[in-house]
Write a protein that binds this DNA or RNA. Structure first.
Lengths: 203, 203, 203, 203
DNA sequence: AATGAATGAGTGTTCATTCAT
DNA sequence: TATGAATGAACACTCATTCAT
């Protein structure tokens, strides 16, 4: 008896998810070049041939994962930025959300580490290039929050670009160390990561 | 008549330095696997064969660069830690030195980015393994400074492990962004990077 | 639908046999170092990559072929040695079998020439080392037959070790010349090769 | 003070001899391909550059050694063949000389093993080809002695080509085993190696 | 949907040979 | 005469991708 349409769709869905999970883990930790198709298919528990039913190439899978990472990161930042909150509250909420995500979801650290690789790797697959600009979008959004906060006095003085980059880069560094240290890693508190931005003497 | 000993030594020295510089840049940005011997020899301006006069393998070169990175990073941190300064002064000096090094020497960012890779790459060349422990040494040293500072009140309260990791990881993140953004990158000030540790209301 | 298990096994079997045949011919005549993977795959009519599906390395294939050669040579000698025959009859049968095999099967000469190479090559692949001792096993078996024959008077007097080595080495030499001379080669008769051992004046 | 002509000539002579000795040992045991210039120059105790002062290439050295081997082997056989002796005496003397040489001079075994390689290696350096015919010359000379001996009854009946090839190939086999077994090797006696040819019932 | 045998271009590495001195 | 740094072509081996079933 052949499978029903529904069954096939479910199987397909499941296989794709297994491939994406395996790919993300391996790409983030080992990089595009050091991750082989065999690695991915073995971790996903499927054959190499099946990988090519769902993804045209290794770089295709890579591009899709990068796209996801960028898109969801941007959405998360935008969501907070558009809330009717003060700069200080936005900053704190953003930090809280990111730390929670890093703590709860294993994949978050992988996403954070994966993104800079896209830039560092000079031989970026063409499909990934359209996302290059978007990677720096959150930095721009936070920069606006910082400028607003500096005007109200909630946020420390200083070059807003430098502050924004430092704020984001510290999360990247954090995720790098999380992957590096495994269970030994201890996440900083919201206060710790926002201390660089918030003006202690405000009000 | 052959070249004199001195001449040969100089030629050798020069070639090795060219190889090391090229290797560090490429390994840090592209990773071990994505960096080919041809990449290195082209950037160094030598033949592929010459690499193998001085290094037994690609991984051997990688291991030596990692060793250098770890050793010099540790030395720099230890030097400051052993000075007769208060915890606050040590923290500030450390941050100042690191930011200056990142700004002045192109290679510093490469070193910082190279180190975590050693952990992320699961297939670590055996020769690199002895340095794994040492990578986390600076974190331990800074942890002691933090604990001392918390007792004097110079440094903010909170888990010293978390603070120390966050302090270091933020430099890693910074260097990652520096390599990523190139000339667009703006270095934060010493105040910005020490804000996470220093107790503003002290004295 | 994938190929059936049986189909895959058959395809695999065939490829392996083609690789083994090509490898044996080339290793025996040219040696391990002078035989390239391209040589083997071209003679076998397959791609270079396929070799590595079935053998981990060139030396792995070499080791397997040596193992086969040693094992089958030893089995052939042991079989005759254990028959309920007189020393003279054993000697004659052994010579007859070996000459027939050399004449009938092209591969026999290759096997004979391959075996000593294992010793001559100082850089013996580690996998081959376990077979080193076994290569001299036939010599020991024939030595026993010779000693028995000397007691009954069927076999000539003299150092049994020297006689045994000479008997075996003469086959190695013969096979070397067969490969060397090709169609010009004329095989000696059983009488010729046993003359060195059999006592003409017996009975 | 520069060296005198005589001194230079002596130095040259010595270097060439060291190269030839090293080359012969290595080529005979490891084969042309597996022997590297570095191997040879290290064993000879000179630099690789110096090798190229005396020999245009690795194959050149190989060719010269093969030429020497063939020439001296042929001379030795011819010398005996032209003596005023009976076929039986010639056979015995030849065997005696060869066994003595194998026993006394380490290089003899290397020469014997080197010669067939020239044939087996399909990619023979062009310079060696002229000697291919000469390698089989001794076989032809011995064939004539055998035919003469068969007419007088001193030598056993049978195809003279087969007998001659077997006689020579047995020495090749012997030398192969000598190199293989090292100190364990026991040389057969003159009687043993001539038994295959001499007619026991003669006279 | 699914497998894994097969391919061949690309990579790491070796080594004969050259050449400045 | 003598050295060894340097080159680059050739080789062992890997791996993304295809394809018969």
């Amino acid at each position: 008896m052949p499978r029903t349409k529904k069954q096939n769709a479910d199987i397909k869905e499941l296989s794709i998810e297994k491939i994406r999970d395996a790919g993300l883990k391996l790409f983030a930790t080992k990089g595009l070049a050091a991750t082989s198709i065999v690695d991915i298919s073995e971790l996903a528990g499927i054959s190499t041939g099946l990988m090519y039913h769902y993804y045209k190439s290794k770089e295709d899978l890579y591009a899709e994962l990068v796209k996801s990472a960028v898109t969801s990161a941007n959405a998360a930042v935008l969501e907070v930025a558009e809330m009717p909150l003060s700069p200080m509250e936005k900053t704190t909420l953003l930090a809280k959300n990111m730390l929670e995500s890093i703590e709860k979801y294993e994949m978050t650290a992988y996403f954070f580490v994966l993104m800079p690789q896209v830039f560092l790797n000079k031989l970026i697959p063409k499909k990934v290039k359209p996302f290059l600009k978007e990677v720096l979008l959150p930095k721009e959004i936070v920069k606006k929050i910082i400028i607003a906060g500096q005007q109200t006095g909630e946020i420390v003085k200083g070059n807003p670009d430098a502050l924004s980059v430092f704020f984001f880069s510290s999360f990247t560094g954090l995720c790098t160390y999380k992957l590096m240290m495994g269970k030994q890693f201890i996440l900083p508190s919201v206060e710790m990561v926002t201390a660089m931005l918030l003006n202690k003497s405000y009000k």
